[in-house]
Design a protein around this nucleic acid. Structure first.
Lengths: 225, 225
DNA sequence: CGGTGTCCAGCGTACAGGTAA
DNA sequence: GTTACCTGTACGCTGGACACC
């Protein structure tokens, strides 16, 4: 892990790089563009000759050539992560709450302000937490301490752990395969090989659908939805 | 005090454990995650059914279930220390000073920083050279075939073979699990209760009630292959 | 040397601004 | 005005590396 020198430029658009993103020094714009393109599986098409200039001032001109250059310069699709849990913007929310508090002093009849406790050291509960908390308090006591040991059933736990591990491997492999398929649409060196790549990928579509669908359904039932 | 065997896995996410953290073998990620969640008194909520899979590749998918599993597997909140002295990063500061001293003679030339090609003598690639030979041309020198470089047929085939193998393992495991599951009328329940009654945590009732819930059994039966 | 806490680069998402239909 | 999408910046989250004890 290294810090980039001050003034390093984005290898895609020559804007000021904000760090190493997906293995190459790049700016925030190209970093986000690359991620979005792959996550959304967007397929762009150049309206000209696939040789558009990609530079800071015109980087939004042709998204196809911009993405192509991202791959050419070595951006790594495998570095993309998937399906993180939702986050909250505490600092922004605090600002908004403070501003709203100021407004409410004048307006007097807006929404009731949440129990803030902003100054107390521990209450960092957000609005979402306040909504979520009143559900089912201490439901665990009914089942109680009878089921105590974490290893109640070795057999089933071992198998489940193994299956869980396998499924995780499967998911990461699917993501990896997505990256391979996607980046092959933009081979680093345009040559006769590209046609072979495409043909190969077309042949693989049947194979892929056999395995991608069940994994995708698993992903939907557990993570995405 | 014991040393963990080489290759011990994290009991939460099955990643490689870095040691005993908060009483259980765990990886750096789960260790830090557990500490942060408690120190910041973060209250997560599962967006699904409180039975998300927590594993290396998807451990960031649901923080609620990840923290729940931390407790279930025996992570001890009493092991968390508060209000320790600030640390000083002497070594890092020394490094930065040394690098700054070395930078005086090696003023940057705008080149994107790549790997330290210590065997490749061209430490002064121009921008034109970088464009003419993108990173993929270094694939022959780079060690990992999966990490970088051109995505060739054998890469796809490797991934496909790996997925196929995993899927067959998964199928046999599911059959095995079916047998085990039907021989046990009651699914395994574990309890996080013992860990939940830390006096410090009782201060925040809303936080507490979020996690004092019955632990649902692993439900893998709705995976359709 | 093992288990703490801390730092920070590189991930992610959320927001605000822009454009277009 | 409304709806929709795209873009780049701001900031939260993660985990590996390192400082303390």
């Amino acid at each position: 892990r290294e810090k980039i020198p001050e003034g390093t430029l984005c290898v895609v658009c020559s804007d000021l790089a904000s760090g190493i993103h997906y293995s190459v020094a790049s700016c925030n714009g190209c970093k986000t563009f690359f991620r979005r393109a792959l996550v959304n599986k967007q397929a762009f098409q150049c309206q000209f000759s696939d040789d558009c200039i990609v530079d800071k001032s015109v980087r939004c001109g042709c998204r196809s050539c911009r993405l192509k250059k991202c791959f050419e310069m070595g951006m790594d699709p495998n570095a993309i992560q998937h399906d993180r849990d939702k986050i909250r913007y505490t600092k922004r929310l605090k600002k908004m709450k403070n501003e709203k508090a100021c407004d409410d002093r004048d307006i007097l009849n807006g929404k009731p302000i949440r129990e803030e406790g902003e100054n107390s050291p521990q209450s960092t509960l957000s609005l979402d937490d306040a909504i979520a908390s009143p559900s089912s308090s201490f439901a665990g006591q009914s089942l109680g301490p009878a089921s105590n040991g974490p290893y109640l059933d070795h057999d089933i736990q071992d198998v489940q752990a193994e299956m869980s591990s396998l499924l995780s491997d499967l998911l990461s492999l699917e993501h990896k395969l997505d990256g391979v398929r996607y980046s092959n649409k933009f081979p680093p060196h345009t040559s006769a090989a590209s046609c072979m790549y495409d043909r190969r990928l077309l042949d693989d579509e049947a194979w892929l659908s056999t395995y991608t669908v069940p994994v995708a359904s698993f992903k939907l039932s557990h993570i995405t939805l």
